[in-house]
């Protein structure tokens, strides 16, 4: 069985977000890059767990990004991927990115494609859905549990106001979130092995980007906190009612 795991490079969750070039470029100064947490903690680890149960499983990682994404791809290989494909291009357009991955997915006829529920930079939650549509397979969004028996998956996913359990035959695209697996730390053996695992670089398919980012903005700064004494809670309630009109 072949699993394709999408890994994206994102700024570390503690990164200070700033922009340069008149608000058109993300300021990379001092930024630590990580594997998008949803890709790493949930979808990649779940794929590794499936491989640990069934040695015939192979895991291919796919990344759409420049050469600067290779350290995080190596880290993902250290955790447990078998091989990686980097599509040598960069874009913020979800259709462009997902169509690049869909081309890899079609060429490799994967049984299962995992994405994180979203990336923590663009927060679109859209890559999995676009891939699924382009290769015409079912899509399970926001999965919190994923079990596989033979070629049938049993999945729990978040829906409006609760969750639902469903069964579906492979092939399949799944977006994973908390609950699917638990974060792991790569061990030394994995890190050593990752150095020699194949990392193939593909040039991008000719696909048209349908959107582009014109500029970035930071939220307006808060005016400053109004402190109320702990023995004057009534004043806080008055402010919330009369000034903020929040209650």
């Amino acid at each position: 069985m072949k699993i394709l795991v999408c890994v994206s490079k994102t700024p570390d969750t503690t990164s200070k977000i700033a922009f340069t070039d008149g608000g058109t470029k993300f300021d990379e100064a001092g930024v630590q890059w990580i594997i998008n947490p949803y890709d790493e903690w949930y979808s990649l680890v779940r794929a590794i767990e499936l491989k640990e149960k069934d040695a015939s499983v192979s895991i291919t990682l796919v990344n759409v990004g420049g050469a600067d994404a290779e350290p995080i791809i190596r880290k993902a290989l250290a955790l447990g991927g078998d091989e990686a494909i980097r599509i040598n291009t960069d874009s913020s357009d979800p259709y462009y990115i997902a169509a690049q991955i869909a081309a890899v997915a079609k060429a490799g006829s994967y049984d299962l494609i995992f994405t994180g529920k979203e990336t923590i930079d663009y927060n679109g939650s859209s890559i999995g859905g676009i891939i699924a549509e382009l290769i015409d397979v079912p899509y399970i969004s926001l999965a919190t549990k994923f079990e596989l028996i033979g070629t049938t998956a049993t999945v729990t996913r978040e829906i409006e106001g609760g969750e639902e359990v469903a069964e579906v035959a492979l092939p399949l695209v799944v977006s994973c979130q908390k609950g699917v697996a638990e974060q792991r730390i790569p061990n030394m053996r994995g890190i050593m092995a990752a150095r020699t695992k194949p990392l193939k670089v593909n040039e991008p398919e000719a696909i048209e980007a349908l959107t582009n980012i014109v500029s970035f903005e930071l939220p307006p700064a808060k005016a400053g906190v109004k402190l109320v004494a702990p023995d004057n809670v009534a004043e806080l309630v008055r402010l919330l009612h009369e000034e903020a009109k929040a209650i």
Binding site: N123, E133, L142
Partner: peptide, 21 residues
Amino acid sequence: QTGKAVAARVAARLKAGLVAG
């Protein structure tokens, strides 16, 4: 949750430009 499941597929099907969020 519904939009996250469906909107991207609709966009891909129509080859529409998508802004999610």
